[in-house]
Structures are given as structure tokens and as C-alpha cells.
């Protein structure tokens, strides 16, 4: 069968309207020609639209309204956004600075730790590697259990808490610090615990990537004059695992910005003491499910979405391949 050459048709000198019509027509034709492919992607596309795209668009729509789940939404324009950045003192003075601090330490920190651990584990022989990677991966799955079993005991506020007892013994402090309820210590504790449990999916992906690097590349590089492990990482490992690293970076960003329960779990209070550990997600939770101000909560979610989007862009710029390389 001879394929019709639709490119030629477009280039013919027609008036604008007929040109558009022809363009649409050719598009329809192309879709029809690729119908099996469209059928193949249909299940995903339909699920994506129903479960992700529509809710997101719905949230964006809601963010321009006042909606309390009882009355129908009332359009208020950009008022929610203006309110968020001007009237909402808690958001501006606690939530935003907290989230920033938390994200810039836990995000890059957890990411670097993941990569380093993945690389280190990849150097180990098989059996031990499997065991250790499982051990490192466990915290990210069993965080809630571990929280009460380990961290709440370590950071217990009385003098028998492990950390307090240790520091008192050294003489660094002279009275026990109430780690998870004090304004200045809650955030550091949250960061430590989150870093500990940050070896998640990104870590596994990176380890798979590091393990899958063709060993011939290392041999070839050695012949070409690479002298040490550092050069190996820079010239072979990182370029080879770039896709996995990008995945890990995006996962790290999303996970960090979506972390919310950690402060509440640690301190056992909602909101956290004097908003010391309040993150954006806590704030959304507060407005959506405690005050039922859905429109406002939607506006905060949209701001969070924009932040995640911009951070992912940054990750792409840093780790995405630029075609020419």
C-alpha cells in the first residue's frame, strides 16, 4: 500500500481557512493511521485523565472560589492567593520558611546520601549487598513503626531519653532538652529522622543504575588513562546513571515537599508546637479538613504544585540529558 504524502498537501498555497481545515484533516488522518498505538496508550491516558489530570484541574478551578463543602463554590477571583501571601501570617512566617529549610536540607542531603550509599553498596559482593540494601531501604517503608520504636525513645524529653542521657553524661547540657516539643529543636529532629528514612525508591533506582553500568566501560576507561575511583565516578558512573539520578532527584523533591506528617508524628501535636515543624502539607491539611476551607486549601496546593514544578525543572536542567551530550 502506498502511503499518501500529506506533507505536500499542506504546502500548497490556499487561503488561511482552507489551510486550517486541511491541517485538521491531515491530523485526523494521521491519528487514524496510528489507531493501534492510540488504543495501546488508551488505558493509561484514560486513567491519567480521570485520576490525575481532572483532580488537578479541579483543584486549580477550586482555588479561585470560596468553597466550604456545604454551599456551592462561589467565585472569588485571585482573592485566595492574595490572602495566602498577605493575611495568612502563619503561612508567611512559619510554614514557608520551615518548608524551605526542611526541603533544602533534606532534598539535596537525602539525594546525595542515596547516591553515595548506592555507589558504596554497589562496590560490595552480592549477598552482603542485597542484605545491606534491604536494611537501608527498610526505614522508608517502616517509618511509622520505627518512629515510635526508635526515635521517640532517642529524642525523649526527660533525662532517661537516650540522647538526653548521653549528653547529660558528657556534661554538654545540664538539664534535659525536650527535643520534640521545643521550638528550636523540633525542626532539626525532623530533618535527622527524614534523612534517615530517605533511602527510598530513588535509592533503589540509583543502585540498579550503578549496578547496570557496563563493566567494559570501566576497563576501557582504565586503558584510556583514568587513574582513580573519583574519575571513574565523574566520567563513567554519573553519565551512565543519569536517567536514574534524574528520577531520584524528582522523587526526592516530590517526597520532601510532600512530607507533612513527620512533625505531627514526632511531636504528637497538630499543629506542631508554635508552628515550629509546620510544613505546607500540614497547612493544607489544616485548612482542608479542619476548617473546611476547600477553596483556600486548593490555592495552597496549587502554590505547592508550582513549587514542585519549578524544582523539577531545576532538576531537569541539572541532570536531564541535553541531547548533544
Amino acid at each position: 500500500m502506498k502511503t499518501p504524502s500529506y506533507e505536500r498537501v499542506i504546502e500548497m498555497p490556499y487561503s488561511f481557512r482552507s489551510k486550517l481545515w486541511l491541517k485538521l484533516k491531515s491530523l485526523g488522518r494521521r491519528i487514524w493511521l496510528a489507531r493501534t498505538s492510540y488504543l495501546m496508550v488508551a488505558p493509561f491516558v484514560i486513567c491519567f485523565v480521570i485520576f490525575i489530570l481532572l483532580p488537578v484541574l479541579g483543584a486549580i478551578g477550586l482555588s479561585f472560589t470560596f468553597y466550604n463543602m456545604i454551599e456551592p463554590p462561589r467565585y472569588v477571583g485571585l482573592l485566595n492567593y492574595v490572602y495566602l501571601f498577605t493575611e495568612d501570617d502563619v503561612f508567611m512566617t512559619h510554614v514557608l520558611p520551615n518548608t524551605f529549610t526542611f526541603a533544602v536540607i533534606v532534598g539535596p542531603g537525602g539525594y546525595l546520601l542515596s547516591f553515595l550509599l548506592a555507589w558504596l553498596l554497589a562496590q560490595l559482593p552480592g549477598k552482603i549487598r542485597t542484605f545491606l540494601s534491604l536494611a537501608w531501604y527498610t526505614p522508608s517503608m517502616a517509618a511509622a513503626v520505627a518512629m515510635s520504636a526508635i526515635w521517640l525513645v532517642v529524642f525523649s524529653g526527660d533525662r532517661v531519653g537516650y540522647l538526653n542521657s548521653f549528653l547529660l553524661g558528657l556534661g554538654v547540657i545540664d538539664e534535659p532538652i525536650n527535643w520534640v516539643h521545643s521550638v528550636e529543636w523540633l525542626m532539626p529532629v525532623m530533618i535527622v529522622v527524614t534523612l534517615w528514612s530517605s533511602m527510598g525508591v530513588g535509592f533503589l533506582a540509583m543502585m540498579a543504575g550503578v549496578l547496570n553500568v557496563d563493566s567494559q566501560l570501566y576497563e576501557a576507561a582504565k586503558i584510556d588513562g583514568i587513574r582513580n575511583r573519583f574519575q571513574e565516578i565523574i566520567y563513567i558512573t554519573i553519565p551512565s546513571v543519569k536517567p536514574q539520578m534524574l528520577f531520584g532527584a524528582v522523587m526526592a523533591i516530590v517526597n520532601t515537599l510532600q512530607a507533612g506528617s513527620i512533625g505531627v508524628t514526632l511531636s504528637g501535636q497538630n499543629p506542631t508546637p508554635q508552628y515550629a515543624g509546620q510544613l505546607v502539607l500540614n497547612h493544607i491539611d489544616d485548612f482542608a479538613f479542619q476548617r473546611y476551607e476547600m477553596g483556600y486549601a486548593a490555592a495552597i496546593s496549587v502554590v505547592l504544585l508550582i513549587i514542585v514544578y519549578l524544582s523539577s525543572k531545576l532538576a531537569w536542567a541539572l541532570f536531564g540529558s541535553r541531547g548533544d551530550e
Partner: peptide, 14 residues
């Protein structure tokens, strides 16, 4: 800053 945002934030967003 708050007063400025209150006045101009909508325009800035748009």
C-alpha cells in the same frame, strides 16, 4: 511588603 502585596499581588500573578 504586605501592604504592597495586598495592592499589587493580583496584577503580578496575572
Amino acid at each position: 511588603r504586605r501592604a504592597w502585596l495586598l495592592e499589587n499581588l493580583s496584577n503580578v500573578i496575572i
